[in-house]
Nucleic acid binder design. Structure first.
Lengths: 204, 204
DNA sequence: AATAAATTTAATCATTTGATTAAATTTATT
DNA sequence: AATAAATTTAATCAAATGATTAAATTTATT
């Protein structure tokens, strides 16, 4: 007999799981934490998802989707290499600003279980290695940009964007910032990063 | 009656704890894991250290010491601002290269329990805010370096150094690198980072 | 050697944790 | 309304975990 899944409950579990997993990581999270956050009986998690591990995988995939979706979209747009790089920086800052714990969450999982992220990232990287790499090589050949391995560039950008979020609590305490101070600092930091990358990459 | 502590056993526990905590984080580590790694009875950990938490704190403080010691030493040497920045980059790359999981370990703990790292970092930052900041301001005034808030620079440097280690498993898989490939990549990456930072910071 | 202190071990405790079960309740279908 | 399916709940299990205890062993001191 047909019986639709109660999407509301499933979504509540997922939302609660995302919040707690992001806050405390996989190992630091208990299934009871999640149930409490969602205001539900803890057995429901095993009814909708089969285990803590599978629930985590669902949440993680969604977070990565959030991260990679805009990225691949930018890469497949008809933009110049320079435009793409600057758009990428803006986009990533936006994503992580909306979700300051995301970088920690993803990188922690990369350490705990590399395979999961690698599977997801390989798909996205196939787009890089085709369209973007050609644009990059053309720009190098024409003297528009510095002759450097694109691997370094594709690492520099997330490094400069994500690290400011990863180290947020330290930055705030060391420089006695409140939340709004940090937001202003972020605005400046975006400018610095864009200027530094552009300054290094694009030759006059 | 005088009876010296068996330093060897204590050190074995600490070494084993450092290895396992670094690998699996605080939450992912069990006291039995550590005892097994050290080849000791698990009750010995509570004999030498009083709890898992206190053992972790000891290990963490030592790791931070390792991280901050060379740093403060460089900062207090009679070097120019430029020399200090370039020495800092070299030093940090050296530390993290010797211990690729260190960055993950420290940043994960920053997320899990910010206070612990903040207490340690505040001491080191006091040196920055005195000697280095004066050198920086002088160099800005003399037009030697770009007029930018030093906070951004002190964030850019660890970002560019540490991220390559944090994302190591992803980089290796995406670009089909083996360990020796990655070491070569690291050598290149140091050059790129130094060139990019110097290019941005130091005006001709 | 005798004694006391320090170290190590095996056994065990009390909680916590992920997961299951069977019953109760709600929702859909006829 | 009656029935079946889907959802939710309370109770509970088995394993894992941090920690403790008391006994055994080793080391130092006299």
């Amino acid at each position: 007999m047909k019986c639709l899944i109660n999407e509301s409950t499933e979504e509540r579990i997922k939302a609660a799981a995302a919040k707690i997993f992001m806050e405390k990581g996989f190992d630091g999270t208990t299934t009871r934490d999640i149930a409490k956050e969602a205001g539900l009986n803890s057995a429901l998690m095993n009814y909708y998802f089969r285990s803590k591990e599978k629930l985590f995988a669902g949440v993680f995939d969604e977070m990565c989707e959030l991260f990679f979706h805009g990225l691949t979209e930018i890469l497949s747009q008809p933009l110049s290499f320079k435009e793409k790089i600057l758009a990428l920086i803006d986009h990533d800052f936006k994503i992580f600003r909306e979700n300051p714990a995301l970088s920690n969450f993803i990188l922690n999982e990369l350490h705990r279980n590399p395979e999961r992220l690698i599977d997801i990232a390989k798909k996205a990287s196939s787009i890089r290695s085709t369209v973007l790499e050609k644009q990059f090589n053309d720009a190098v050949a024409s003297g528009e940009i510095r002759n450097v391995d694109i691997k370094h560039i594709l690492l520099l950008i997330p490094a400069n964007i994500q690290f400011v979020f990863i180290s947020k609590p330290l930055t705030m305490k060391i420089h006695n910032m409140c939340e709004s101070d940090f937001e202003l600092f972020l605005d400046e930091h975006i400018k610095v990063v864009k200027e530094m990358v552009a300054n290094y990459l694009f030759l006059k």
